[in-house]
Amino acid sequence: MPQKPFIFLSPRVDCGSGNFQPRLDTSAFLNRSAHIFSGRIFRGVKTKKILWVSRHSPQPAQIEALNKAFPNDEIKIVRHKGAVWEGSHLLKLVKKGQYDEVVLVAPPDVFAYVVSYGIPVIRAVMARGKGRSYEFLRFERVIEAKFRTVPLLEDKIR
């Protein structure tokens, strides 16, 4: 039976002063099988659907960074748990789900394929932390993905 996608919805919550702030429910990182974040959509606030393609769930700092990057939108992050090895597969996922943005951790050729079709792709820049952990630094928008190569060794096969 196919699994339901893992959905984070990070609504902007009116704190009483008319100031909308992101609300983060830490239980999202403990219960990975349920729809964790839920909230109402305020008038004039658009929902931005983001496909999260990574083996790892979004960190709280990453959700906060997306909220800052799109301050006028309610952020809805849908996590794709399976591996994506081909750009054509990812392109089908994006079109089927009608996503506005894609946060992608994948091989470079997948980036190149998806960007060539005009899909907005975001990549997370991470720094190695202690042990096997990584620390989130920032997001970057991938505008172009090219390969420049040279032979590693001369061809000896004839």
Rank of each mutant, 00 (worst) to 15 (best):
Q62G: 05
D25F: 11
L66G: 01
A145K: 07
I119V: 15
V102Q: 00
S88I: 11
F6N: 04
E86H: 14
E86D: 08
K48M: 13
D155V: 14
F42V: 07
H56Y: 09
W85Y: 11
F37Y: 04
F136D: 06
Q59N: 03
A28E: 04
D155A: 14
K48Q: 07
G39K: 09
Q98G: 05
K46Y: 01
I143Y: 04
K48T: 07
I122Q: 01
E86Y: 11
V114L: 05
F139D: 03
S133R: 15
K156E: 12
I122V: 09
N72H: 13
V142C: 05
K95M: 02
L66M: 08
G82C: 09
L24W: 02
L90M: 08
F111I: 07
R148D: 12
V103A: 02
K81L: 10
V102W: 00
V45S: 10
L9V: 07
R40M: 06
R40S: 07
L90E: 06
F139Y: 15
A83R: 08
V45K: 14
N31W: 12
K68Y: 08
S54M: 01
F42P: 02
Y134L: 09
D155S: 15
N19E: 11
L153P: 00
P107K: 15
I75H: 05
S10G: 03
V84A: 03
F139K: 06
V110W: 06
V110C: 08
G44F: 12
D14A: 13
A61I: 01
Q21G: 01
L91G: 05
E154R: 15
R128Q: 12
R138D: 01
L51E: 00
G97M: 09
K68Q: 13
A83G: 04
S54G: 01
K68I: 03
V105D: 01
R148M: 09
L30V: 13
T47W: 05
N31Q: 13
K156A: 15
S57K: 01
V125S: 02
A83T: 07
P58N: 05
K49A: 06
E74L: 13
A28G: 12
N19D: 14
